[in-house]
């Protein structure tokens, strides 16, 4: 299926190594980057929400985005798969490259981008269908009809989302009957079913209890073996626990982007220190 999608988009998959984080303060080790953002500005009508954001998202690592409410972190996340354009008054400038291709280019296939850059939201949003149909939804849209192929995809995706054992005997029950934590992991399985590269997570545990949160956090650690993950979180300890890199946004600007260990132990910018230590007045 992967091959089909790539052929459809006629994309030249080209990995590139470069020194990350050329512009902002902080230190990020040299890594392969999967998404490169350069001088991104974004406006909702006449209100500017992002200012000159430049950031290279590392491949197969967890990048956390933190910052106070209204700092632009969710807007930034939704820009990475162009979901932000569902708001009609949005304008952008600058560039975002996914695997070296400009996603804002008129030739770029949005469906391809949405397949490769999946998203998980704050509140679990399963479809009012069975667990099986939720996970098989994406592959079916991509034209996969054979039951045995779909069976395999569903099993693999639910295993990938660490929920197969809990749900293998309940595949045909309605996903609405699951707990919030289970629903969220089904949504992650649904995102995995179309074989993405990047998973965007917008506060994926803020509606979950501590046990479900711990399960999702564990899952994120496993998923980074194969996927690049960008997670927006209000929970600073969560960012510190699960991410490799952390970006701190304030008033639409990227203030500091650094290795998570460095950012939480010894931030370079006073505004970062004030925010993470809770001294934001």
């Amino acid at each position: 299926m992967n091959k089909v999608i790539e052929e459809k988009a006629n994309i030249n998959v080209n990995q590139k190594t470069r020194e990350t984080n050329g512009n902002q303060e902080g230190t990020v080790e040299k890594t392969n980057s999967i998404i490169e953002v350069n001088d991104l500005n974004l406006w909702y009508g006449s209100d500017q929400a992002l200012y000159e954001v430049s950031m290279d998202v590392p491949q197969e690592q967890v990048t956390a985005i933190i910052g106070p409410s209204g700092c632009g972190k969710s807007t930034f996340l939704k820009t990475l798969n162009r979901m932000v354009e569902m708001v009609p008054i949005v304008k952008t400038s600058g560039s975002i490259k996914y695997r070296d291709q400009d996603i804002f280019s008129s030739k770029y296939k949005q469906e391809y981008l949405r397949t490769k850059v999946g998203m998980v939201f704050q509140k679990p949003n399963p479809f009012p269908k069975s667990v099986y149909d939720n996970v098989a939804y994406g592959p079916r849209i991509h034209g996969i009809k054979k039951k045995e192929v779909l069976d395999q995809i569903v099993e693999k995706s639910l295993k990938g989302a660490a929920i197969w054992d809990e749900l293998k005997d309940r595949l045909h029950e309605n996903a609405y009957g699951l707990s919030g934590g289970q629903q969220q992991r089904v949504c992650i399985a649904r995102a995995l079913a179309v074989e993405p590269d990047v998973i965007l997570m917008d506060e994926p545990t803020s509606a979950l209890d501590p046990i479900s949160t711990a399960k999702v956090e564990e899952l994120v650690q496993e998923l980074k073996q194969k996927y690049s993950i960008i997670i927006v979180t209000h929970n600073m300890q969560q960012a510190a626990r699960i991410s490799d890199k952390t970006a701190f946004f304030l008033n639409g600007e990227l203030i500091e982007f650094a290795n998570t260990d460095d950012l939480f132990q010894n931030p370079q910018d006073k505004r970062t220190e004030d925010y993470i230590t809770g001294r934001f007045g």
């Binding site: 300890q237 939480f264 132990q265 220190e273 993470i276 230590t277």
Partner: peptide, 9 residues
């Protein structure tokens, strides 16, 4: 308090 940065130190 789960302190970080200078507070942790």
């Amino acid at each position: 308090q789960q302190p970080v940065a200078r507070d942790l130190r």
